[in-house]
Structure formats: C-alpha cells, structure tokens
C-alpha cells in the first residue's frame, strides 16, 4: 500500500520574519527553509508504518508544490525515508492553488491514503488538506492521531470534542494530522542521507489556476504593553479580577 504525504516548506521556526517591497513581500534573503513541522510528523509516521512489517504500507511518496529552492527539503524527506519525491513546479499564491496543483497530480493515484499536516507555519491556513479532499472527492478525516490496520484496511483514530473515534473509510482518504500522529520528527540516519540523491525526485509542470485570495500587505503584530510584575498571589488575583476584569 502506498502512502502519499503532502509537504510544504516554511521559514525555520527561529527565523526572524521580515518583509520588503513596502511590506508586500516576505524577505526571503536570509531565511533557512525547513519542512513544515506538521508535515515532518506526518512523514515520520508514514515511514514508521512502512518500516513496520505488520502493516501493509510498503511505499511512501512525498509531494510538494514549490520552486527549485524546495528541492533540498524534498531530499531531506527522502533521507528520512520516503521512497520517491515529486515537485510541482510553481510557487503557489494561496492554499487553493496549492490544493489544485496537488489534486491534479494525485487524481487517480493508487494509494491507501494521503496525509497532510494540519497547517503550515507560514500562512497558517489549515486549508490545503480539506480543499484537496474536496477536489479529489475523497473523504477527509481531520485531527487524526493514529492509524491502525484491520488486515489491509486502515482504521483512523481521530480526536473529537469529547473523546476519540475510530473510523473506516470506503476508498482512499485525506488525513489531516497534528502533533501526536508522531511524537517527534525522525532524524535521518547516514544511510538515508547517503541514498537520498539516488532516489527519484520528479519535477512536473504546474497547471493553470487562479488564486482565490490575495495577500496584499504584512504588518508586525502590535507590541505588548510590558509586563507588570507582582509580588504576591493576592496581587495577582486582584489584578486579574479588578484590573483586567477577566475573572
């Protein structure tokens, strides 16, 4: 069974975010790009499922929409343990474009399920997974915390408001996953790093599609007024109730 993992790349989480061109563009000159952390967890779990002989998963492919600059990120995914990488050659302008590109490539692909990290750490849309499922007309299972198998049928566990549910889907599904799907991202080993270059990384052309929304400007978040240091628990309770009026 093949598992497809959709990945995006974001500025390293410790990077300072700056903008240029009158605050209309992200200043990417000093940014170090990394795999979006939720996607990295998705890939980690997919690779673990493949390495676990007790599951029917035997192949993991990663797919990314992006320009040539994201190839090192894909090769890191291959080093972590994906078997194949595909890059759809365009820098997308919004989540709809990303999802449409992915859907065009994934339509009809033989696979058990498709995994998407809940959101990306750049535009925080949490949109691509759901859009992709709709475009493919697949079921989407969100807040997935684990995958078990009943024979060759995947059973997805999802977190719901008052507990956990296990669900089964007739046909392929898009899983939207968050922390908990894997505990920590897998660190690639030397063998993985060495073989990453010999694994296939296909580049395919993008299709024409217009974005639905436009990012016109960026501003810095408002700065905080500064901390008020308190000396006793009594002062804290009083401040929260009388001053902030929150309790």
């Amino acid at each position: 069974m093949k598992v497809l993992v959709c990945m995006s790349y974001i500025p390293d989480t410790t990077t300072k975010i700056r903008f240029r061109e009158d605050n209309t563009q992200l200043d990417d000159t000093t940014i170090q790009w990394v795999i979006n952390p939720w996607d990295e967890l998705a890939l980690t779990r997919a690779v673990e499922l493949k390495e676990d002989a007790g599951t029917p998963v035997d192949e993991v492919e990663i797919v990314m929409v992006g320009g040539v600059r994201c190839e090192p990120i894909l090769r890191k995914g291959l080093a972590i343990g994906a078997d194949k990488a595909t890059r759809i050659d365009v820098e997308p302008l919004d989540a709809f474009q990303t999802a449409t590109q992915l859907a065009a490539y994934l339509q009809g692909k033989d696979c058990g399920f498709i995994v998407c990290g809940i959101e990306s750490g750049d535009y925080n849309e949490a949109a691509v997974g759901g859009m992709l499922a709709e475009l493919l007309d697949y079921a989407s299972v969100s807040s997935v915390s684990s995958v078990q198998f009943d024979g060759v049928t995947p059973i997805y566990q999802r977190d719901v408001a008052n507990g956990k549910e296990q669900v089964k889907v007739d046909g392929p599904a898009v899983l939207i996953v968050q922390k908990g799907f894997a505990r920590v991202p897998k660190i690639p080993n030397m063998r993985g790093i060495m073989t990453a270059r010999s694994k296939p990384l296909d580049v395919i052309p993008a299709i024409e599609v217009d974005p639905l929304v436009e990012f016109v400007m960026y501003t810095a978040p408002p700065s905080k007024g500064g901390v008020k240091m308190l000396n006793t628990p009594e002062e804290l309770v009083r401040s929260l109730s009388d001053e902030a009026k929150l309790i």
Partner: peptide, 22 residues
Amino acid sequence: NAQGKAIAPRLSVRLKAGFIPQ
C-alpha cells in the same frame, strides 16, 4: 477550530469562494 478547519476549506472549493482563516 477543528470543525471549522475540517469543513470550511471543502466548502471553499465547492463554492469557489475565497477562504480566509484566522
């Protein structure tokens, strides 16, 4: 929240409606 995130993007595709979260 999780439910909004699960349904709104799907609806965006069906309606070809711009989706603005957060």
